[in-house]
Design a protein around this nucleic acid. Structure first.
Lengths: 170, 170
DNA sequence: TGTTGACGCGTTACAGTATAACATATATAC
DNA sequence: GTATATATGTTATACTGTAACGCGTCAACA
């Protein structure tokens, strides 16, 4: 049976940000997977790092480094920028968090370990950020680059617009 | 005859950043087109704005707002950030300049008035930025968004890698 | 068991990016 | 030629990100 990129492997519920889902469950699943992956990679999921991931997993929004820092400081961790930036850097490097450049912000990855390269759909009304499967998009981008002899190492694809719920409300 | 998105309409030379071309000519062409388009739109291409566009047209690199500002200040314009940011904002709004979010920088649009939505290819070795025709990429992205009910208003597609010349040198 | 070395955390200090708000000047419409 | 809108210049400040140092902790190992 083919794996559905947008469904929770545990309960089958869709974990797409815009879909109604048991978020506490989906967040817990992702956190557990991240912990396991870190262990496998010999990387240390320390208290600060875990807490940052948890904070980003609270909802499907992207948070600025300083928002994260404020939360950390309130909980007794350090209150200087490097504390947040270092944890975020670690999480991004290991694929547990995505950086949303358009927002100068960070969002938890909902598919850790899947080596995906999603497109980000940012709702300008409710601020939710969803990861959309973007394999065809990457393929087209790769083709465009190849046509001019350019070799891609990393790329970011971000779209700003309205999610289904907010569109319905308007 | 079909229009070649990457060729200069005046002389047929390719204007892609990575291709060898008569850049002075290509820059002059783009500037002239931008001036005409601004006039048509009833927008005022003032000295600062024109100068900012000229600066960005000097080569195919992206410049930070403060780089632009430094140039402006040296030429007798104001030397405070808003001077640069306002001119850049105007140029971006009118499609004469693109914002490269990955670099926190701005690059002259080489196809003003074409209502295109390019993918940006950023060479990490020589810093050149090229606009690649990205219609298929947009189509794929649009499809991915539509699949989850998301409606895109604006999007940015940026790739980091190596241009043909730098790849050859390595 | 004591040392060593790598790593993570906290802090200071600073660099780079961006905008709000107000005053002045310039252009355009009538 | 005055009124109005637009553009520029300036001050001040907010937001985002990093370099560098020192301390503590933990694991490897003599």
């Amino acid at each position: 049976m083919p794996h559905d990129h947008n469904a929770c492997p545990d309960c089958g519920l869709p974990d797409l940000a815009f879909a109604v889902h048991d978020h506490a469950h989906c967040a817990a699943q992702v956190l557990a997977r991240a912990e396991a992956l870190a262990q496998d990679a010999g990387a240390r999921m320390t208290p600060v790092r875990r807490r940052v991931l948890e904070i980003l997993l609270e909802n499907h929004k992207a948070l600025g480094a300083y928002d994260v820092l404020q939360r950390l400081a309130a909980e007794g961790f350090g209150n200087q920028p490097p504390v947040a930036y270092r944890a975020l850097e670690f999480l991004v490097e290991h694929g547990f968090v995505h950086r949303i450049r358009r927002l100068n912000a960070f969002a938890a990855c909902m598919h850790p370990g899947e080596d995906h390269a999603p497109a980000f759909l940012i709702c300008k009304t409710c601020d939710l950020v969803a990861e959309a499967p973007a394999a065809p998009v990457r393929t087209a981008l790769e083709a465009a680059a190849q046509a001019v002899g350019f070799s891609i190492e990393r790329s970011n694809i971000e779209a700003l617009g309205q999610c289904p719920a907010c569109r319905g409300a308007a």
